[in-house]
């Protein structure tokens, strides 16, 4: 038996090789992030100026002329910034109250059959491809109203954000000790007051983090907006009119050789906003840990 054990050296060798492979592959897996960041920053910083925030997208013709004369691109992405604010803002307005309510309901009725069905459907919605959600918003809003609109875009983003907010709310509330609720009720407080004065404040960190992450996730969504908000070359605050958004502009710039210089600076802006949201979410999660 002990002779067979003499392969110890081989086994230790294998053990070491495995550790090295794991380290090397993990290292390689991290490289794309830095390559992407490098691409976006190094190509985007040139046009990352005040103009980007104050002027709307130039026409392809003006951009071409500027290019021929070796001038910087005459315009920015103000229409995209306002559009994103409008569309995402509305989506927050729709999805947060609804998502919180559903999350509270699910956390409180875990064993009801109806809650289980709702919980399963929430998973289903969460796994739904964003392009299909685009189709739905098209069918529900664009078709009946006869026009592409910011509203349609925000409906699509609402459907995307909803399951994420429901899940994070439900999960956070489930982690709170049951005694919180009982203590509140034992003091003679109403259920409504317990929810608003005890449960939601105690779970604030987790819930708020979930909302921020949901916002950052839909911020860069392009496909559903192509089918719903469509895009516009002017600043539009009217919810029933076609509206642009930063990711939609990136798509336009990518497809227009004259405007392609703006593609990286808009991506840079988008990444900054998304990473900032992620960072705030992480900080909040750490500070208000349940």
């Amino acid at each position: 038996m002990m002779e067979q054990v003499s392969s110890t050296r081989v086994r230790k060798g294998k053990d070491k090789i495995a550790l090295w492979l794991v380290c090397i592959f993990s290292f390689i897996a991290m490289i794309p992030l830095f390559l992407i960041l490098w691409d976006v920053v190094s190509k985007g910083y040139k046009n990352f100026n005040l103009r980007l925030f104050t002027e709307v997208t130039p026409s392809s013709m003006d951009a071409l002329l500027a290019r021929v004369n070796n001038e910087p691109i005459p315009g920015g992405i103000l229409n995209g910034i306002t559009g994103t604010l409008l569309i995402v803002g509305m989506a927050i307005l729709f999805s947060v109250p609804l998502g919180l309510s559903i999350g509270i309901y699910l956390a409180d009725n875990q064993n009801k059959r109806f809650a289980k069905v709702v919980s399963y459907l929430t998973d289903l919605l969460q796994g739904m491809p964003s392009i299909v959600i685009g189709i739905i918003a098209y069918a529900w809003v664009v078709k009946p109203l006869g026009s592409y609109s910011a509203l349609a875009g925000s409906v699509a983003l609402t459907i995307m954000m909803l399951p994420m907010i429901v899940r994070s709310t439900e999960e956070t509330l489930k982690m709170l000790p049951g005694a919180y609720k009982e203590a509140g009720l034992a003091l003679g407080s109403s259920y409504t007051n317990v929810v608003f004065k005890v449960l939601l404040p105690s779970g604030f960190g987790g819930i708020f983090t979930g909302i921020l992450l949901a916002i950052s996730r839909v911020m860069g969504e392009t496909a559903p907006l192509m089918l719903t908000a469509l895009g516009a070359s002017v600043v539009n605050w009217h919810v029933l009119e076609p509206t642009s958004a930063i990711p939609l502009l990136i798509w336009d710039f990518y497809n227009d050789p004259n405007l392609v210089d703006l593609v990286w600076s808009s991506s840079l802006l988008l990444l900054i906003v998304i990473f900032l949201l992620n960072w705030i979410a992480k900080t909040v999660a750490r500070k208000w840990k349940v």
């Binding site: 992030l33 992407i36 691409d39 976006v40 911020m219 860069g220 969504e221 392009t222 496909a223 990711p247 990136i250 798509w251 990518y254 593609v263 990286w264 991506s267 988008l270 990444l271 998304i274």
Partner: peptide
């Protein structure tokens, strides 16, 4: 990172 940036 948004899908469209991966595409770029």
């Amino acid at each position: 990172i948004p899908s469209i940036v991966f595409g770029l």
